[in-house]
């Protein structure tokens, strides 16, 4: 139990880099198929519902996310600590995305698509103020939020372990770069 908690708290501190890479690549491939199956467009800090993405599009989007995050954080990592290894940053990005892949199940049976369409319709006709959302939708939303927070946490803790960053300025730079990378890649992903 203690080991499991330790693993959830910081897998990058205890698991060997080769094992992390293996799990990371494996989950990355599964994640691509899940995104394709559930018709979801994953971006760094957002999740869009699409009607018919092609498998090629989904693969390219996922490669853009992993490559951009790995390159940006490796550059920042090298500035903070010259001993930072690309492998540790790549593992951080690949492993941190696992909670996001799990969150794809939110759209099981088109649940998210149906619920968001109903909500958008309710906003359009003004009935949103008189309706209360289904309990399951709220529950799924909270689980999705929790998984998103855990994804950001893993990304941060993995970066911290890979770079030995300790200063507040390093943490601020990390989050600023995360937001900038999301904005830049969002344009690129939407253009494909």
């Amino acid at each position: 139990m203690n080991k499991l908690l330790q693993l959830l708290k910081n897998p990058f501190a205890i698991i060997e880099d080769k094992k992390l890479l293996f799990f990371g690549i494996f989950s990355f491939i599964i994640g691509i198929f899940l995104a394709y199956y559930f018709q979801l467009q994953r971006q760094i800090l957002r999740l869009n519902i699409l009607e018919t993405p092609t498998i090629t599009q989904v693969i390219i989007w996922h490669f853009i996310i992993v490559a951009s995050l790995a390159i940006i954080f490796f550059t920042l990592g090298k500035i903070i600590n010259r001993k930072t290894r690309f492998l540790d940053i790549l593992n951080t990005v690949l492993i941190s995305l696992i909670p996001i892949y799990i969150s794809f199940f939110q759209n099981f049976n088109n649940f998210l698509t149906v619920q968001t369409t109903q909500m958008l319709d309710a906003i359009k006709d003004g009935s949103i103020y008189t309706q209360s959302p289904p309990v399951l939708f709220i529950l799924v939303g909270f689980i999705g939020l929790f998984l998103f927070i855990y994804y950001i946490y893993l990304l941060f803790i993995g970066f911290k372990t890979a770079t030995n960053a300790k200063k507040t300025s390093h943490y601020v730079l990390f989050f600023v770069l995360l937001i900038i990378t999301d904005i830049l890649t969002s344009g690129l992903i939407n253009s494909i």
Binding site: F12, A13, I14, E16, D17, K83, R85, D88, T161, N164
Partner: peptide, 17 residues
Amino acid sequence: ASQLGISYPTVRNQLDD
């Protein structure tokens, strides 16, 4: 790292500290 059951960057960070 292998003997202590922790990852390489953790050992390297401990050494740097």
